[in-house]
């Protein structure tokens, strides 16, 4: 029998996979995608809690998370395009002109 606890564990595992991606990868787009995995792990936890408590709020929150993620993707990818135009690279450790 699968309960919401199983989904919570899955969400924890996914969250840390995403975190490893953010920390170890150098490609900005891949870092970005790892952030999306973390956001989605959070969404899964919200939905699992909504299912467990029998309240709909968890599902409503997911709606907002998705909207914010969509807005973030639009702006973030625009930033990446602008960076690529100026620096010809999207490697996080080569974009260091602001580092002193």
């Amino acid at each position: 029998m699968i309960t919401s606890a199983h989904f919570m564990v899955l969400s924890a595992v996914l969250f840390f996979i995403g975190a490893v991606g953010v920390v170890t990868r150098r490609n900005l787009i891949v870092i970005f995608m790892s952030v999306e995995i973390m956001l989605n792990a959070g969404n899964l936890a919200f939905v699992a809690i909504a299912n467990r408590l029998g309240t709909i709020d968890g599902q409503t929150i997911v709606f907002f998370v998705m909207t914010v993620a969509a807005a973030e993707a639009a702006v973030g990818l625009a930033v990446i395009i602008a960076m690529f135009r100026n620096a010809e690279t999207i490697k996080a450790d080569e974009l260091s002109s602001l580092r002193w």
């Binding site: 309960t3 606890a5 924890a12 490893v20 299912n51 029998g54």
Partner: peptide, 28 residues
């Protein structure tokens, strides 16, 4: 290092979440 820390943290999170949400949820 990151992988190791992540495995430990994920294990800890999973354990806590599992223990605190064990049992049946609400009837939907």
């Amino acid at each position: 290092g990151a992988g190791g820390v992540a495995v430990v943290l994920a294990g800890g999170f999973a354990k806590v979440l599992w223990e605190h949400s064990a049992g049946d949820g609400a009837v939907l």
